[in-house]
Amino acid sequence: MSNTILRVEKLKKSFELSNGFFEKKKTIQAVSDVSFEIQKGETFSLVGESGCGKSTTGRLISRLLEPTEGSIWIDGMEVSNKKESQLKQMRQSVQMIFQDPYASLNPRMKVKEIIAEPLTIHTNLSTSERQKKVLEILEVVGLSEYHSERYAHEFSGGQRQRIGIARALIMKPQLIIADEPVSALDVSIQSQILNLLKDLQREYGISYLFISHDLSVVEHISDNIGVMYLGAIVESGPKDTVFANPQHPYTKALLSSVPVANPRLRKEKIILKGDIPSPKNPPSGCTFHTRCPFAMDICKKEKPKRQQLQEENHFASCHLLDQ
């Protein structure tokens, strides 16, 4: 048995756009080249600006969207080419936590029904057995029996996210895809939820695919990170390595934007010009060359290859690394 819970290879997703009946169909490359692995019990974070395709990647892995190309292995089984009816196993071992805890819980269902929904779908447990499991899991996420009879809208954001986590947890999944699970919450609540996620990982050995745009959150929770820009991972590696020694100019720019608590500590900030280009019409060569402060001629023409750097598992795609 290998230790890899999720392997994604050369994942691609394009959406077709048509503006009108007579116009030519355009395609958007939402995800153009994403490859990474997650080991059992570890957290892999995808970071990047909004619109870079990180949420789409999460939805592709959970098969809410059909990948255009590429393959996804979950616990050694390829799922990217399977039909929905063949995904029963995967629907139990992979669960999701969503960004907005206000929208991801059905307002017309009681908390106990929401949390028990995966059990209702996948098992034949009796109502009382389900109830017992729900109460156990409520305890685990820091809620109590008393909450189970209420509707989701009676709770605060943090509590709702705990309900979302309880729902994801009840099948004892191997992988949880957490799509910006704390970005809709107050900062004071964020750390509670992050710590809860960490505690659960320690307890049950769950792996997380953690999608976020917030680098301080990512730093807190990840083992490995992948930095995405315009649908592709430009740099990936162990968290400490990437944070201490970023190699891709985009990673450098992102990291330099994180505020530092010490006002005396002078840091060189890299400020990027302009906006993220439209994925409808991505730039030639290295997609980052339009905003890169170190762009060279070759960047406009050739796509940089992904290369292994000095430290283990640290990869980046940039022409600067060849010099």
């Binding site: 995904l87 999701m96 929208a103 991801s104 059905n106």
Partner: peptide, 26 residues
């Protein structure tokens, strides 16, 4: 379009259940 419908899909809920439990009440 509600996220909880997407959530139900990600759990593997069959179409019939999604329509009956999550969409019809709306």
């Amino acid at each position: 379009e509600n996220t909880y419908v997407e959530a139900a899909k990600s759990m593997g809920a069959p179409h019939r259940r999604i329509m009956y439990k999550h969409i019809f009440p709306e």
